[in-house]
């Protein structure tokens, strides 16, 4: 009985706080993305040779982000029937966009106008109970051009 109550409380906490956290995070991502729209991050490996940057520098941005209890529970249910796990899709989407934004912030603080050869790397950091993946790290890096 006690276990059931604990489970319900954890689910409720996860649902409530997780939802608020996600909404707030998305809002913050959208406003910052608008702010850095004039600083493009490009995946091109070979920049135009006519570009003559005053300086180039490696810029990075990383974030470790965790899924909440409720979503993890849902995804375990999803494991039974299969199909899209939306809870994790938004987690990874948020993590990638956040990492790119942090990379752009790093570049912006150095006075960059372009970021080339952007690479993204994802790794799972924390394996929660029952080896369910609890959190992911996303690293974004690229070469910033200052002119």
């Amino acid at each position: 009985m006690l276990e059931l109550i604990t489970l319900i409380v954890l689910l409720a906490l996860g649902y409530g706080f997780g939802r608020v956290a996600e909404l707030r995070h998305y809002r913050s991502i959208q406003s910052r993305e608008a702010q850095y729209r004039n600083l493009p991050a490009i995946a091109t490996k070979f920049p135009d040779p006519s570009l003559r940057p005053r300086e180039t520098n490696l810029v990075t941005g990383n974030v470790v982000i965790s899924v909440d209890y409720f979503k993890r529970f849902l995804s375990q249910l999803r494991n039974i029937v299969g199909g899209r796990v939306k809870a994790y899709e938004t987690l990874l989407d948020r993590a990638r966009r956040e990492a790119i934004l942090r990379m752009k912030e790093d570049a912006h603080s150095q006075g960059a106008s372009l970021i080339f050869n952007v690479k993204l790397e994802t790794s799972s950091i924390y394996k929660g109970k029952g080896r369910a993946i609890g959190s992911v790290e996303v690293l974004a890096y690229g070469t910033a051009f200052m002119d």
Partner: peptide, 11 residues
């Protein structure tokens, strides 16, 4: 892991 969100320490 219960509440969700960024793990600043890990970052």
């Amino acid at each position: 892991n219960v509440f969700g969100g960024e793990l600043k320490g890990y970052t």
